[in-house]
Simulated assay, not measured.
Amino acid sequence: MPTFSQLIKNPRIPKLHKIKAPLLINQPQKRAICFRIFIKNPKKPNSAKRKVANVGFIKKLSIFSFKKINVLTYIPGIGNNLQANSNVLFRGGRVKDLPGVRYHLIRGVLDFNGVKDRKNARSKYGTKKFNV
């Protein structure tokens, strides 16, 4: 336990927390363009074929400088209509068994359709309610 005079010389430094979605600081979603849609296999105990999209956008650093950023995003739900050059919206939220995938695509917005014939948890998959 440090003494009072030791704390005056060297004050305590608060811990720095790692930002989980660094591209989404102060914004809930971001718009991007799909470059490539492919399948990735999860880490060791799990086995599946997870659909992943490589999306990109241009980040403005200053008035004259820009940076092109590519991100791996997860495609939730069953089936999709994504192609190269589709406009999409992505949010934070990692996929635990896919290394490097920190973001989810949002369904039912822009060029990305919602899941067909979805009855439960429709808001997560961009499906409208139809009176059946």
Results as ranks from 00 to 15, higher is better:
residue 12 R to A: 15
residue 74 Y to I: 12
residue 98 L to K: 00
residue 16 L to F: 07
residue 56 G to T: 01
residue 106 I to M: 03
residue 64 F to Y: 15
residue 125 Y to P: 03
residue 13 I to L: 15
residue 12 R to V: 11
residue 78 I to M: 08
residue 45 P to R: 09
residue 91 R to I: 12
residue 28 P to Q: 11
residue 86 S to Y: 05
residue 58 I to Q: 04
residue 26 N to G: 06
residue 96 K to G: 13
residue 4 F to M: 10
residue 101 V to D: 00
residue 59 K to N: 10
residue 32 A to P: 11
residue 33 I to F: 09
residue 110 L to Q: 13
residue 118 R to P: 06
residue 19 I to G: 07
residue 30 K to N: 08
residue 69 I to L: 07
residue 85 N to T: 05
residue 86 S to M: 03
residue 56 G to Y: 06
residue 79 G to P: 00
residue 121 A to E: 10
residue 22 P to C: 05
residue 52 V to S: 04
residue 18 K to Q: 13
residue 54 N to P: 01
residue 5 S to H: 10
residue 113 N to A: 11
residue 61 L to I: 15
residue 73 T to A: 14
residue 77 G to V: 05
residue 6 Q to E: 10
residue 40 K to T: 08
residue 62 S to Y: 11
residue 94 R to Q: 15
residue 127 T to S: 14
residue 41 N to V: 13
residue 6 Q to L: 06
residue 33 I to P: 00
residue 62 S to H: 09
residue 37 I to W: 06
residue 33 I to D: 00
residue 115 V to R: 03
residue 100 G to D: 01
residue 98 L to P: 02
residue 19 I to S: 07
residue 106 I to H: 00
residue 45 P to Y: 14
residue 119 K to E: 10
residue 77 G to A: 08
residue 90 F to I: 02
residue 81 N to V: 00
residue 51 K to H: 12
residue 76 P to I: 02
residue 13 I to T: 14
residue 120 N to I: 15
residue 46 N to G: 01
residue 79 G to C: 04
residue 45 P to V: 04
residue 33 I to E: 08
residue 37 I to Y: 07
residue 9 K to V: 08
residue 88 V to G: 09
residue 91 R to C: 05
residue 106 I to D: 02
residue 70 N to F: 11
residue 21 A to E: 11
residue 113 N to F: 05
residue 116 K to W: 01
residue 56 G to V: 00
residue 5 S to C: 03
residue 5 S to L: 12
residue 32 A to D: 08
residue 117 D to K: 15
residue 126 G to A: 07
residue 87 N to V: 13
residue 46 N to L: 11
